[in-house]
């Protein structure tokens, strides 16, 4: 029996990620939130303000998409804590780190799908993209923002007790990131990840730029934000769910 049953971390990670996906896609409200929130702004700008305004704000709206993952990830881990499933899982030979990584992986896959869908929708609704725009950067910039969102989500999941409070408190992060970062208005704090990403996205999408400043520099700064937030989130989450 023991020979047959040798749990491998990669397999555990795969099965947990699949489990997370199944749980997510079977909850319609989560799908509506993930795709619906950015879609509302696409429709608003395109049909409310017209194509000219839509062209200006499309980069910010695409950056908006991965920001919603903050509440998604925080809700996911808060639910695992609240329902006791996290504790049940760790009575099996799976580590807390593997459970944590599976949550991050599944959200990153969601982010990738979400960004592609939002890019395709903006194109479908007639946004003008500079012919010299680098397609990879159009995907990579919002994807990097997804990392910072996961960091914020983990930190939030560490401090809340329930999934519903995670969902509510997430707005205190999402809205400042959205408005102070200038995704839908002029930026007020140009050092926060959303402001850095919106500037880089606009440069690529509208001007077809590949210059180090703002693109390369901003990407490095967003990556620093992302790594810092995720490390802090992991540290806090592990501490809050540690064996006492």
């Amino acid at each position: 029996m023991e020979k047959k049953m040798r749990p491998k971390i990669i397999q555990q990670l795969r099965y947990l990620t699949i489990k997370n996906f199944k749980s997510m896609i079977r909850e319609v409200s989560q799908l509506v939130w993930i795709f619906g929130y950015p879609l509302v702004f696409i429709l608003l700008f395109r049909f409310g303000y017209g194509l000219e305004v839509f062209n200006i704000f499309a980069p910010g709206v695409i950056i908006l998409a991965p920001i919603v993952l903050i509440s998604q990830l925080a809700g996911h881990f808060a639910e695992e804590k609240e329902s006791g499933t996290l504790q049940r899982l760790v009575t099996t030979p799976v580590s807390r780190s593997t459970v944590l990584l599976s949550g991050l992986f599944s959200q990153l896959i969601v982010a990738a799908v979400q960004i592609v869908v939002m890019l395709l929708l903006t194109l479908l609704f007639g946004v003008s993209i500079n012919p010299n725009a680098n397609i990879f950067l159009l995907f990579f910039i919002p994807f990097l923002v997804a990392f910072t969102s996961l960091g914020f989500g983990l930190i939030l999941a560490s401090v809340v007790r329930t999934a519903s409070s995670a969902g509510g408190l997430a707005w205190f992060i999402i809205l400042p990131l959205q408005f102070l970062g200038g995704l839908l208005t002029a930026p007020l704090l140009d050092f926060i990840p959303t402001a850095l990403a919106a500037e880089a996205m606009g440069a690529v999408m509208i001007y077809g730029s590949t210059a180090f400043d703002p693109i390369g520099l901003n990407l490095i700064l967003i990556a620093i934000w992302g790594i810092g937030l995720i490390l802090l989130g992991i540290l806090l989450f592990r501490r809050k769910t540690a064996i006492l």
Binding site: K22, R88, P93
Partner: peptide, 29 residues
């Protein structure tokens, strides 16, 4: 070991079969 907790600790959006499979998968069956 196997642990059956006092509380009902299940994944509500998984089927009965998927819930049971998940624990087997964590044990590398």
């Amino acid at each position: 070991i196997g642990v059956c907790p006092q509380e009902l600790v299940l994944y509500p959006r998984l089927t009965a079969r998927e819930n049971i499979h998940l624990i087997a998968q964590m044990h590398g069956m």
